[in-house]
Amino acid sequence: MGARRLAEMQVEVTVFATLRKYLPDLPVGGSKYIKVDPGATPADLIQILGLPADEVKIVIRNHVITELDEIVEDGDRIAFAPAIAGG
């Protein structure tokens, strides 16, 4: 357990549009840092943050659109968005 805690990582997370209601303390444009275990994926972050998985349509990791099962790394910025488009 102790060894695992040492390996704990920190990632920056943010949410957009209709997902904002699940993290009401975040101001528009705001983000927060959370601690995760090595090997964590965006799908895990969605659980940790309490976002409804079926409402998350887009995951952006360090400005690159990514998949739910991609493993995140220490210091990553991960953004979650619902279905969006328009123009």
Partner: peptide, 23 residues
């Protein structure tokens, strides 16, 4: 999800794109 009532377009308009395209 995008076009329904209170979905992305209805709640935020087309400018819902700003943060995401920027990201």
């Amino acid at each position: 999800a995008l076009t329904k009532k209170d979905g992305g377009l209805n709640a935020y308009g087309t400018d819902v794109l700003m943060n995401i395209v920027n990201e």
